[in-house]
Design a protein around this nucleic acid. Sequence first.
DNA 1: CGTCTATTTGAATGTACTCAAAAGCGGTGG
DNA 2: CCACCGCTTTTGAGTACATTCAAATAGACG
Lengths: 193, 193
Amino acid sequence: MKEPLIKSVSKYVKLDTEEEIIFKNFWTEKTLEKGDYLLRNGETCRTDNFVIRGALKAFYINSENGKEEILYFAIDQWWATDIESFQKQSPSMYNIQAIEKTELLQIRYDSFQEMLKQIPKLERFFRIILENYLGSLQKRIVFNNVFDAEQRYFDFLENYPEVADKMPQYLIASYLGISAEFLSRIRTKNKPY
Amino acid sequence: MKEPLIKSVSKYVKLDTEEEIIFKNFWTEKTLEKGDYLLRNGETCRTDNFVIRGALKAFYINSENGKEEILYFAIDQWWATDIESFQKQSPSMYNIQAIEKTELLQIRYDSFQEMLKQIPKLERFFRIILENYLGSLQKRIVFNNVFDAEQRYFDFLENYPEVADKMPQYLIASYLGISAEFLSRIRTKNKPY
DNA sequence: CGTCTATTTGAATGTACTCAAAAGCGGTGG
DNA sequence: CCACCGCTTTTGAGTACATTCAAATAGACG
């Protein structure tokens, strides 16, 4: 069950057998049913979460119209944590909710700090995955301005086919920053016949 | 000259006197004149850069119309590096250019790695500032969808008054993802008389 | 099969863009 | 010292991309 996480870590830092055991012991399994919340806005994000299997959405609730604005999706082998809230142990502005049954690995804040103390080279791992994620966020900001809705949609389909498969269309629309109706029109327009 | 960087580091990790000396020796000063490039798209970002004094813009060149899309501004005490390009030592899609005379501290990729080896607790520092930056990027993505151009502009003025002061209006417009003309109309509309 | 939710379609509207031109502003040289 | 040049900002007119609201249709699930 913890193999996917170990595998992910080993891409960037080498743990010896003993470290691997220590590492594993810090993480606990959790299952979310469809619709369950991992985090609600206003709460503090107490755990860092790694998705083994399933699908989650992280979103902001627009206070003017109550609509969800998708920040990101998380499926197998991705992280699903409000990093700022987790790191500062301060209230989050986001919600994280299961879109289907989801299996997670979790570590609480104090354990996370303790784990880094015991295995300092993990600092490196977390720094690197942050750097990667950060690069993709920057790209997303720029692309949102450079490309129109249609281009962004097809770009999304290309880059995240597995996510596009699992998610309802209206959530993909929200992720892309467009209305569900407009995404529907984009699809109709591009139908083969 | 290196005090601002030391000060920034000390917010998150404590360096003893010896470490501080080692740390300082890794960084070299550099001055850019107005218009000088720190990085051009297609090049690899060879250095991590900390701004002592000045102003830089990081931007993507829209291949369809040649226009600059501002990714971020960097003024005193900020970082100005394409992190993804620097970390992977791979070609960058961005440009970084001085808007005015700018003093930097720089460290080359190999030295950066060596520095982390010699002072491992710096891993922690870089992880934390990445987390902070990441939080602000996420907020920017969500806010771009939730708020209209006018709200985003006034939000920008509130949060980055020093940046707003230094930057020409058309670059702020680009940062906000709107046209220079439209930002001008927003300002006119909100003039007191 | 019926109900609930998601998607599609239509019509009217709005926010922001483009192109073009004028006005403003700052620096430089005659 | 002021006139001119280049760049930024403003203004105008026409347009486009995307939204909203409403209603119809299609899909999923018990």
